[in-house]
């Protein structure tokens, strides 16, 4: 179905790798890119600060690495990202890069990944050739807590991620790794977490083709309900007591994003809209992935599940608002608990 929708062209998956300065993005990438499965991957690295150091570590990508000059991928050089991706597409279609299976965009440590997604979804050409399948965030087991405490960018990166890789677990105390994992789960219950010592991580699992990212079932971990991070970030996992009117949900969410876009870090989940399969909703701040109407549910659980990660908005307000919209939605929200 997906191919039919795209008129016979397959979109190339684009993976965004984000993570705070020194959190091991490059180590992870250089490890991952050495896998044969990743041979036809082009990598876009952003030069920022130190002169191309990160780039030289990524040996495998040599000529396919397009350095984005002029600073941060997100804010100042989004056009560069467009140009770089169009350039890759051009080389691919002229046969100079015969196989282009995937593009990885490595962001700077301070980058907010949302604008990258926005660039890909809104560009008239790129939106037909690339789909963002996965946002990976690396978090350093030694300094992760410190970064999360002091840098809102770091929290945004975790909230935007579909998968979080905790790096340097070999040099950190086990207890502090566990604590960090719990905290990451509290910030973003929809993300899958991995541990990587010295960049060693299961590549297949991280980049599992066709299952990664937006198409995967969000791994909602609702066990610790009403989770909130020590800072002002809250997350709430919800379900509905019946099929949700998709049009009404679109009205509610577009209205919320217009009013509180800055404060909604993430929306992710699957909604039962009364069809054979769910609608996959995935949004990072203002940027909503094109919602996918699936033909079938990925697992036996056919109930809606959705995670909202917000900054400063108390979870009760979101639930209360959805409850007030219940008449329009055709279903009532309730917090998602796991069976004990």
């Amino acid at each position: 179905m997906r191919r039919a929708v795209e008129n016979g062209t397959t979109r190339r998956p684009l993976t965004v790798v984000t993570g705070f300065l020194g959190s091991g993005k490059t180590t992870l990438l250089s490890r991952v890119l050495s896998e044969p499965a990743m041979a036809n991957t082009a990598v876009l690295v952003n030069e920022f600060g130190e002169v191309g150091l990160d780039h030289h570590l990524l040996r495998r990508v040599d000529e396919r690495t397009v350095l984005l000059g002029g600073g941060c991928v997100c804010c100042t050089t989004r056009e560069d990202l467009v140009v770089a991706l169009l350039d890759l597409l051009d080389l691919n279609q002229r046969g100079e890069i015969p196989h282009l299976d995937r593009v990885v965009v490595e962001t700077t440590g301070l980058a907010d990944p949302a604008p990258i997604l926005h660039t890909v979804f809104s560009d008239p050409v790129l939106q037909h050739h690339f789909s963002v399948d996965l946002v990976l965030a690396t978090v350093d087991a030694l300094n992760g807590n410190l970064h999360l405490d002091n840098n809102p960018e770091s929290v945004k990166q975790v909230a935007a991620a579909d998968k979080v890789v905790v790096t340097k677990t070999d040099v950190a105390e086990r207890a502090s790794v566990e604590g960090l994992l719990a905290r990451l789960g509290a910030i973003n219950p929809s993300a899958q977490t991995f541990e990587a010592a010295l960049g060693e991580v299961g590549v297949e699992e991280l980049f599992r083709p066709g299952h990664a990212g937006t198409r995967a079932a969000p791994a909602v971990l609702p066990a610790q309900n009403s989770l909130h991070d020590t800072a002002e970030t809250h997350s709430v996992s919800l379900t509905f007591d019946g099929p949700v009117d998709w049009t009404a949900f679109g009205i509610w969410l577009s209205m919320l994003l217009h009013a509180r876009g800055e404060e909604v870090l993430r929306v992710k989940g699957m909604l039962d809209v009364g069809g054979a399969g769910p609608v996959v909703v995935n949004g990072v701040q203002h940027t909503i992935h094109p919602p996918e109407h699936l033909d079938a549910w990925p697992d036996a659980d056919h109930s809606s599940r959705i995670v909202l990660i917000t900054k400063r908005i108390p979870p009760e307000d979101l639930t209360g608002s959805l409850r007030a919209f219940g008449g329009l939605l055709g279903a009532r929200p309730s917090p998602l608990y796991t069976q004990p």
């Binding site: 209205m255 217009h258 509180r260």
Partner: peptide, 28 residues
């Protein structure tokens, strides 16, 4: 809908917020 909410805010003279308690009460 992307263009509707900003236009509605211009006409109403205030932002339309789904979390607004008054709106929630009215809808309920």
């Amino acid at each position: 809908l992307g263009a509707l909410w900003p236009a509605a805010a211009r006409l109403a003279g205030r932002p339309l917020d789904p979390l607004d308690p008054a709106l929630r009460r009215a809808l309920s």
